[in-house]
Deep mutational scan, measured.
Amino acid sequence: AVSDRLIGRKGVVMEAISPQNSGLVKVDGETWRATSGTVLDVGEEVSVKAIEGVKLVVEKLE
């Protein structure tokens, strides 16, 4: 699937994400809805860990 190529890629949070609410991330110039187990603020760099349906699962870049 086209989304599989995104796993491991870096992105930037465009709309804040929390465990309760999905947000938006931009990866390779495309905007995706994303979820995370932690709070991520706009502008934070993330990496794509998995894909669930049409949402990316991301975590903060260390």
Rank of each mutant, 00 (worst) to 15 (best):
S47M: 11
D41C: 07
V25W: 00
V46S: 02
E59R: 05
V54E: 15
Q20P: 15
A1N: 08
G23K: 00
V12R: 10
I17N: 02
R5A: 15
W32D: 02
L24Q: 11
E45W: 10
L61M: 11
P19R: 06
R5W: 15
E52C: 07
K60T: 05
A16S: 09
A16E: 09
A50V: 03
L24D: 03
S22C: 06
D4F: 02
K49W: 05
T35V: 12
S18E: 07
T31Y: 15
S3T: 15
L61T: 12
L61K: 07
I17L: 05
S36E: 01
N21A: 12
K10Y: 08
I7K: 05
E59G: 08
E59S: 11
N21G: 12
V2G: 13
V2I: 15
I17S: 02
K49F: 05
E45A: 13
E62L: 11
P19T: 05
V48R: 00
V42G: 04
W32T: 03
R33Y: 15
P19S: 09
G11S: 02
L24M: 12
T35M: 09
L56Y: 02
G11C: 05
K10H: 14
T31L: 14
K60D: 03
S18V: 12
S22R: 04
V12Q: 10
V48K: 00
A50C: 06
L6D: 02
E52T: 09
V25I: 07
E15W: 05
I17M: 08
D4M: 04
E52Y: 08
A34R: 00
E52S: 10
L61S: 07
V42M: 07
V12I: 11
R5D: 14
G8M: 03
L24N: 05
V25R: 00
V46M: 03
G8I: 02
L24V: 12
L40V: 09
A34C: 04
D4L: 04
V27R: 00
L56E: 01
I7F: 04
R9Y: 10
S3D: 15
L6A: 03
S47L: 13
E52H: 10
K26Q: 12
E45M: 13
W32V: 05
L61P: 07
A16P: 14
V46A: 05
G37V: 13
V2T: 14
V12Y: 09
V2E: 15
S36F: 01
E62W: 12
V46T: 02
V42F: 07
A50N: 10
E45V: 10
T31N: 12
V12C: 06
A34D: 01
P19K: 07
W32H: 12
K10L: 10
V46W: 00
R33G: 13
V13I: 06
V42H: 04
G8W: 02
V54D: 15
E15A: 10
G37H: 15
K60Q: 06
S18I: 12
T35D: 12
V2K: 05
M14G: 04
V46L: 02
V54L: 15
K60F: 04
S18G: 12
D41F: 12
K26I: 09
S22V: 12
T35Q: 11
S3K: 06
V25K: 00
S3Y: 03
K55G: 14
I51N: 04
I51K: 04
E30D: 08
V12N: 08
G43Q: 06
E62G: 08
V27L: 07
T35I: 10
K49D: 03
Q20V: 08
S36D: 01
V25S: 01
A1E: 15
T31K: 13
A50E: 07
K10S: 09
V12K: 07
D41R: 11
V2W: 03
V39N: 10
S3V: 12
K55Q: 14
V54M: 08
G29K: 06
V13Q: 00
E15S: 09
K60I: 05
T31W: 11
R33L: 15
I51S: 04
D41N: 11
P19N: 07
K49M: 09
L6N: 03
G8N: 06
V42Y: 07
E59Y: 09
E62A: 15
G43H: 09
V57G: 02
S47W: 14
P19M: 07
R5C: 11
V54Q: 12
R5M: 11
V2N: 11
E45T: 15
G43E: 08
S3L: 08
L56G: 01
K60S: 08
N21I: 13
E45G: 10
L61F: 11
M14N: 06
D4Q: 06
V12F: 13
W32L: 06
V2Y: 03
R5K: 14
D28V: 07
V13C: 06
T31Q: 10
I7W: 03
E59L: 06
V58P: 00
G37F: 15
I17F: 03
G43S: 07
V58N: 01
E15N: 07
K55R: 09
V54K: 06
W32Y: 14
R5Q: 15
A16N: 14
A34L: 00
V12E: 06
G11M: 02
E45R: 11
G37P: 14
Q20I: 14
V27Y: 02
V57K: 06
Q20C: 10
E45I: 12
S18A: 11
A1F: 04
K26H: 12
V54W: 07
I51M: 09
S47T: 13
I51C: 04
L56V: 09
I7R: 04
V57M: 07
I17T: 04
G37S: 09
E44L: 12
S3G: 12
V25C: 05
E15I: 06
G8T: 03
V12S: 08
G11V: 03
A1M: 10
L6H: 04
V42S: 06
K49C: 06
I17Q: 01
G53R: 03
A16M: 13
G23W: 03
L24R: 07
G29L: 09
M14H: 07
A50D: 07
L61H: 10
K26D: 09
G8Y: 03
V42D: 07
K55Y: 15
V27C: 04
E44K: 05
G29T: 08
G11E: 00
S36W: 02
T31D: 15
G8V: 02
I7T: 04
S18W: 10
G53H: 06
V54A: 14
A34Q: 01
D41M: 14
E45Q: 11
A34P: 01
S36M: 01
V13E: 00
G29P: 05
G37D: 13
R33M: 12
T38H: 07
V58M: 03
G29E: 10
S47E: 12
S36I: 01
V12P: 02
V58R: 00
K26P: 00
